[in-house]
Design a protein around this nucleic acid. Structure first.
Lengths: 139, 139
DNA sequence: AAATATAGTTAGGTATATCAAACTAAAATT
DNA sequence: AATTTTAGTTTGATATACCTAACTATATTT
């Protein structure tokens, strides 16, 4: 029997590993961690401007500009000129970009079903109650 | 109440976030993900040669060589000439390198105690039993 | 002893990720 | 209308992360 620390370590290590594999086996192979992070941020912000995105990513506008150029070249995003303010553009995810944005949650979903495969329904229910209580201290 | 999928997603996302923060707030700030990965690999292999390490990292010897040069410059590793085969050198972690190698497990440990903070002892015991059963399908 | 294989390095190339500083164009303020 | 601010780009710099190909030095095989 593993201790809680060992269990958490096994679970987290394994999920990191699965994520790495998932990225390798899709057409997202060449996406860097930074790029994926940027895409996820764009997704969570729903069509931000470069400035808004820059603030969240905590890098300079120059860096964001360059990164967006690359993501656009690779077909993950599109810049759409704003109507109200003709200086600024909003970043939209393409279908490919959206797929990338969901990589993490997809893997988590897959991992969740793997993890509960061997449990009975009542065990699952108990696990759900306990984890709901447990995550109160991390949210 | 969150579903099991939501719970897993919250837990994994949060742990990734905490890891990122942990790296930022130590003297490991400038370590890249690849470098950390390399250091963890060296740690798990216990003083491998460049060739052995290369095979595990699945990159070329040239890339490994350059990466090790950098890690040595930054004080994470040391190359020690082998006695039996004077062509090869074994990679040793310095104290700083060892600290970096434990970053992940340290964060996992910290995360485990955070997660169980609100649970009673008997709840913890049940959680341990359930998770031990759950991880059988992922190991 | 000569030929071949292995360990690791170096050189030259491409791509990413970051910055600061100088820039352009548009919007907002005075 | 003139000035200043803001949004975003471009330029030039540094560092990482890869690769292939050519290299050196040492071991191993023949």
């Amino acid at each position: 029997m593993y201790s809680i620390e060992e269990l958490i370590n096994i679970i987290l290590s394994k999920s990191e590993h699965i994520e790495e594999l998932a990225k390798q086996t899709t057409d997202l192979k060449n996406l860097t961690t930074k790029q994926l992070n940027c895409i996820e941020m764009i997704h969570s912000m729903e069509n931000p401007t470069l400035s808004e995105l820059t603030e969240k990513l905590k890098i300079t506008k120059a860096s964001t500009s360059v990164m967006l150029d690359r993501l656009e070249e690779h077909g993950f995003i599109q810049k759409v000129k704003s109507d109200n303010d003709r200086r600024s553009a909003h970043v939209h995810l393409t279908d490919k970009g959206n797929k990338a944005a969901h990589l993490h949650t997809d893997v988590h979903k897959q991992f969740a079903s793997l993890l509960t495969k061997e449990l009975t329904n009542s065990e699952k229910d108990i696990l759900i109650v306990l984890l709901n209580k447990a995550i109160m201290s991390i949210e």
